[in-house]
Write a protein that binds this DNA or RNA. Sequence first.
DNA 1: ACAAATAGTTGACAAAAGCAACTATTTGTT
DNA 2: AACAAATAGTTGCTTTTGTCAACTATTTGT
Lengths: 314, 314
Amino acid sequence: MDGKISQIRLFNRFYTAQLGIPSNRFLDSPYSLSEVRVLYEIGEHGCITAHRLSELLQLDKGYLSRILKLYRRDGIIEKKPSDADRRAYDIRLTDRGKAQLAELQRKQDEQIRRFIGSLRSGECDRLISAMQTIKRLVSMASDNKALGDRVTYRAELYPGDIGYLIHLHGKLYAEESGYSQAFECYVVKTFYEFLERYKPDKDKVWLALYDGEIVGCIAIVDRPGNEAQLRWFLVHPGFRGAGIGRNLLEMALAHCRERRYTCVYLLTTDIQQRAIAMYKCMGFRPTAAVEVVQWGKVLREERYDLLLDSSEER
Amino acid sequence: MDGKISQIRLFNRFYTAQLGIPSNRFLDSPYSLSEVRVLYEIGEHGCITAHRLSELLQLDKGYLSRILKLYRRDGIIEKKPSDADRRAYDIRLTDRGKAQLAELQRKQDEQIRRFIGSLRSGECDRLISAMQTIKRLVSMASDNKALGDRVTYRAELYPGDIGYLIHLHGKLYAEESGYSQAFECYVVKTFYEFLERYKPDKDKVWLALYDGEIVGCIAIVDRPGNEAQLRWFLVHPGFRGAGIGRNLLEMALAHCRERRYTCVYLLTTDIQQRAIAMYKCMGFRPTAAVEVVQWGKVLREERYDLLLDSSEER
DNA sequence: ACAAATAGTTGACAAAAGCAACTATTTGTT
DNA sequence: AACAAATAGTTGCTTTTGTCAACTATTTGT
């Protein structure tokens, strides 16, 4: 945790240094940084009052008043008394002001262009997506919005999803349970078999997505004897404890009830205590167990079953 | 491209606003932002001259001189004439100065802690990794370092790699060539078959990594009759044109020569013109072709062969 | 050996930002 | 409806922040 904090502190320091923050005469324009920020903000809002501006930019209203006076003198903005409140004025950019703003943006763009000129497109894409990530997370941290609201679910597979699911299984089981590479090979095999005899009307995969990336999944595989197997249940460690696992499980079991399966079973190992607790909570009961040496570990492979009473459906 | 630039411009604006840049009385300390930046910089260097400080922080030397005077008055720093240059002074923090700096960092950390308090660990990890990405890319853009230097190669598979390779194939072929999901299933199958009869001494996979992430790969699969098949050749679109593909191909072919294969062949489709050009350039020649309807497209599947003359080895 | 450059200091000054008092209006309370 | 409290905006005054140029003491280059 402390490491994370100092990382952020370092980034802030780095970025302020990069931007060369305390720079006046912003980009050769006759205006200072604060003045330019005002210009941008007016441009963004189209029409705005001084009070709102000072709120948004955290500027002293006296100071702001002077900046606006300057802009009016230069023909950048025009003020007209607000209809709603005759103490206040609606401020908007004149054509000249719009031109000035466009010119500023052009200069800034030019600077950025030169700056990223040496980056390859893939690197540039990474830069931008990293910036968007920060923007989103930073505004989220202040919004204090719950994680659950930012996670979406999808019951469809898009190209790349299967590979990513295999990737997650291989990576997370290696990191968390010390499984060897052989486990990932096994996962490839299970997916291969699944895809070989995939029945779209019966088999189903649900994904939990955060910011477009898969952070959880679950699947139901049709088995002989009107049974269903629950597979590939996984939630990314950084996103656990927010009910994502529960949501996935509930979606999968709802599907099983709807399809009138008589029984849902799953195979797991004694290492997956967190998942097992959740299975038990949903009504699964252990029905078989066997010791195996697999994936570089000695494991107790367990089977859990949940009998579905379709009469509950009424 | 213009979209990328405006994204970056927006981020800069957003982040400066977030940091609340023009704030004096930094974090309730008796010092201003500029003064604190000086304090940080001295702390970081341990011992530094005023000239170097003004260079690093882009501060006027007169202004800096006054800041240092203030710090000396407050017992934050001590100056002693430099041994090397008697015009200059070595500046270091006193114990009191170190305490002051630590206190500042503590306050800043506290602020950050409160700030990220509402984030889940996975989100926080994303935030930090995004910040590191930006830091790295931004310093790289000014370093003007070539991409090639930032890409590493690895001839070993770690857990998660296979899944990620399948993911990349599924995603990129869908995006670039319009292949359907079925293609990814096919890739899963090819990997399944590969892993089933994997011969560590003969079969080989090479990965190109950028910032720890796979951006390219190639593999050699042992085939009957002393032949080798070249498979899964791929370079992430954002990283093409930097010689990564060529490097991968050369590594793979060097391996084939070393293992004294008589022939290397590969299967591709007419859509992959970019790869085909590279194959041809390395000496591959078309040997067979067949029209197929596959993966949602009508494709011309082509086979290319490269005969290896082991006498060249001498 | 001597001109040019460099590290640091200081005085004078301009720009940026904050504070408080003031006017004109609106809002809320009884 | 009357009136106190709050709000939008302006202005004068102040402090803080930062710039510029002149100056001293030393080092560097030729």
